[in-house]
Design a binder for these strands. Structure first.
Lengths: 250, 250
DNA sequence: CGCCGTATTGAACAAATTCAAGATCTGTGG
DNA sequence: CCACAGATCTTGAATTTGTTCAATACGGCG
């Protein structure tokens, strides 16, 4: 249950459209058609499921503000976050082709979600093939990110995993206008552990090590990158998997 | 360099079409249009890259026979397999919207690949919106599998990881007509380790444990499931993430 | 037969978890 | 403004899990 719901504001889709246009070229008509998608938005406090596991969904959720995660868990209750979504991300655009949620979506902090109905998305992509490709591509970028996370979790050390996550988030936040080297990340240490497959205790120790080595400081929901190049080297971070246009990669 | 290349056989696409039709309803005309896709196929020995890391691709690769994997690796050379593709899988259909390969594709054994050009795929989906949705959905199923692998690698014990992989492969092979409890899996123990994020040594010990407990025996490129229910319980395997039609889930 | 890739085993080691106790922070109500 | 409660963070010690290293065995094939 959201804190409150509103009809859509005319420009609420703009951050997502900006993300789409970064990787797909769309005509003015196509963009207008996306912008005309009806929807409504809801505000959730932290730690609220806005899509439940196994649910059959009828809407795609776009993150307008805040931070959301895709959560899965084992029978014994161990949690794994398989995606983090920042403003401008369509957290479950994939639910348009595949409406059965095979993981939950949850807010990590107070988060505004914009909901667009599958019917409208499907009608739109049926009419505009280029929009279909743009949406499909948008999903594949998230899949490429998950693929890199899998390498990270499966084969990297704790320090490398955390460093890699910080590099990725820094770059993603920079794209939406935050400061790459000093941004807000409203996630607990336990959340970070659930992203990279480590316990909260070990995340704590790893963050301390990164701070002591003056690579990055994570404290109180803020990330300060102290030495970008050293962090990149530690993480073996290569941003190509983010599929950014060349001018966005520094 | 493939061992040999041929023009496409008329029915080479059928296993993939069967996979698509399992989850998407397509008209006779749409199916005929997919089947009419021009392409050609190539045979590779084991351990051959047929898509290299970072390459800009111009074709989608469909696995006709054999076994292929999606490989990524860290700077220090540790490998991680982020997908396994069995006959009927489109290993990189996602390259149609996103042609820059952010991981490599490699044969694990002698494997036949069917190549269909991006241009033809794009023309097809532009003409048939339902085909676009079917292709997008096909990609999302693979993304759902990767998401489950991430949970498995991040949070499950070695025995659970291997058990889960065996359950998934058993089910996927069963769908394409193999015996769920006795199928060929032409992967080495090192390959299995690269899938679940363990060393070859530890995979060896884990397989022995599974055999001693009479859950499953993996030997000489064959998997024999000895106690399906016990294996499912050990793995906490819930096949919903495979998004199979209800009648295919036993 | 002999070769090479694969599989197997043991022992020492390293990394991360678990368990448990405190400390700190944050928001709430008095 | 302060006290309090609950969540989050921090730290240490013991333990577990999986890795590393190294040696040996197997197995299919020329």
């Amino acid at each position: 249950m959201p804190v409150k719901s509103h009809p859509i504001l005319p420009d609420a889709l703009d951050p997502w459209i900006a993300r789409l246009r970064m990787r797909s070229s769309l005509t003015a008509e196509e963009i207008a058609a996306i912008r005309a998608l009806p929807g409504e938005f809801s505000v959730y406090d932290g730690n609220r499921d806005f899509v439940r596991l196994g649910e059959r969904t009828h809407h795609c959720c776009i993150v307008v503000s805040g931070l959301a995660g895709r959560f899965d868990q084992t029978a014994s209750g161990a949690r794994q976050i398989t995606a983090l979504h920042i403003p401008g991300d369509a957290a479950d655009l994939h639910s348009a082709p595949l409406p059965e949620a095979s993981s939950a979506l949850q807010s990590l902090t107070r988060t505004t979600i914009l909901r667009v109905s599958h019917d409208d998305v499907r009608a739109l992509v049926a009419r505009y093939p280029a929009v279909a490709m743009a949406f499909w591509r948008d999903c594949e970028v998230d899949a490429a990110i998950l693929s890199k996370w899998t390498l990270n979790i499966g084969r990297a050390s704790a320090k490398q995993r955390v460093a890699h996550l910080l590099c990725e988030l820094a770059m993603r936040f920079a794209i939406i206008g935050e400061d790459r080297d000093d941004f807000t990340l409203p996630a607990t240490q336990a959340h970070l552990g659930d992203v990279v497959g480590l316990t909260n205790v070990h995340i704590n120790r790893t963050l301390r090590a990164l701070a002591e080595e003056r690579l990055a400081v994570v404290r109180g929901g803020r990330v300060e990158i102290r030495d970008w190049q050293a962090l990149v080297d530690e993480a073996d971070f290569d941003p190509r998997y983010l599929h950014l246009p060349p001018e966005r990669v520094r």
